[in-house]
Simulated assay, not measured.
Amino acid sequence: MKAQELPLRKCVACNCMKPKNELFRVVRLPEGIQLDPSYKGQGRGAYVCRNLECIALAQKKKSFNRALKCAVSDDVLNSLYMELENGSR
Rank of each mutant, 00 (worst) to 15 (best):
R66W: 00
P19M: 05
A56D: 13
V26C: 03
V12Y: 04
R9A: 00
A3W: 04
K62Y: 10
R44V: 09
D36I: 14
L77Y: 15
V72D: 02
V48C: 02
E22S: 09
V12A: 06
M82T: 15
G87A: 07
D36R: 11
C54S: 08
F24E: 09
L8F: 03
I55H: 05
V48N: 09
I55E: 08
Y47G: 09
A71W: 09
N51C: 15
V27F: 06
L6A: 12
L29F: 03
Q59L: 02
R89C: 03
A58C: 09
C14K: 05
L52G: 07
I33E: 04
R66M: 01
N86S: 10
C16L: 09
K2H: 06
N21W: 00
G87V: 10
C14V: 14
L77N: 03
I33D: 03
P37M: 13
G45I: 11
G87C: 02
S88V: 10
S73Q: 08
K2M: 07
L35T: 13
K62I: 07
Y47T: 09
K60E: 11
C49K: 07
L57M: 08
S79Y: 01
K18L: 14
C14W: 03
Y39T: 11
N15Q: 12
L8M: 12
K20G: 01
S63F: 02
E85L: 01
N86K: 14
L52W: 05
A46R: 10
V72W: 02
R28Y: 01
F24L: 09
A56S: 11
G43K: 07
L6M: 10
P37I: 15
E85P: 02
K10C: 07
L35I: 05
D36M: 04
A58S: 14
S79E: 12
L68Q: 08
V12S: 05
I55W: 02
L23A: 10
K2F: 03
K40F: 01
N86E: 14
S73V: 08
E22L: 11
N86Q: 15
S79W: 01
V48M: 03
R44N: 03
I55M: 10
E83R: 03
R89Y: 09
D75I: 00
R9D: 06
M1I: 10
E53I: 10
L23H: 05
R50A: 08
A13N: 06
C54I: 11
L23C: 10
E5H: 05
R50H: 00
C16H: 13
S73T: 15
N21R: 05
Y47F: 13
Y81C: 05
S38T: 15
G41Q: 06
P19T: 11
P19V: 00
R44W: 00
Q59N: 14
I33C: 03
L29R: 11
Q42F: 01
Q4K: 14
C54T: 06
K62G: 07
M1K: 04
A71F: 11
R66Y: 08
